[in-house]
């Protein structure tokens, strides 16, 4: 009798994870795949270019450095979000392996809306926006 919990996507994901190395820190596996991180980073770059997700804050050097660090942090966080959420989507939605990198690209590009939607769904508050950080209330 076939095992009820096993799916084709799950088997595919396990096979893919076995061949592609995952990141580790001090021997602890993080479960992040390099290819998903790269795809998520590319998606974050496209979002910065087309959607202006991290707008400039001013013209001084201080503002420039702060904005640059924010953009780097944004791209890094988007990559990590894509790295962790895309395999989850693969398992839940039965997405084929061929669309894995496309999914990571999409999640990386829309990391904030995707996280907001998921948190809203899981917490039962719908897709409400997350509260803004102090000092960023006026930013889009």
């Amino acid at each position: 009798m076939a095992e009820p919990a096993s799916t084709t996507a799950g088997v595919t994901f396990i096979a893919a994870t076995a061949t592609i190395p995952v990141l580790t820190i001090l021997g602890v596996p993080l479960g992040l795949r390099v290819d998903l991180l790269v795809a998520g980073f590319a998606g974050a770059l496209v979002a910065i270019i087309l959607l202006n997700t991290v707008p400039a804050m001013g013209d001084t050097w201080v503002h420039l450095v702060r904005t640059t660090l924010r953009r780097m942090a944004w791209a890094l966080a988007s990559s990590a979000t894509a790295g962790y959420l895309t395999p989850l989507a693969l398992l839940i939605a039965n997405v084929p392996e061929a669309l894995m990198l496309s999914g990571a690209f999409a999640v990386g590009g829309g990391a904030k809306p995707v996280l907001t939607f998921l948190i809203g769904r899981l917490s039962g508050k719908g897709s409400q926006s997350l509260p803004a950080k102090p000092g960023q209330e006026g930013q889009p």
């Binding site: 592609i20 190395p21 990141l23 580790t24 820190i25 390099v34 770059l45």
Partner: peptide, 25 residues
């Protein structure tokens, strides 16, 4: 994308990703 690869390469090596393990980097 290319510059991020240059920045990330030593970090990924330190995090246990073997060189040549992926075609992307």
């Amino acid at each position: 994308l290319g510059a991020a690869g240059a920045v990330a390469a030593p970090v990924l090596l330190a995090m246990g990703v073997p060189s040549g393990a992926t075609h992307l980097l």
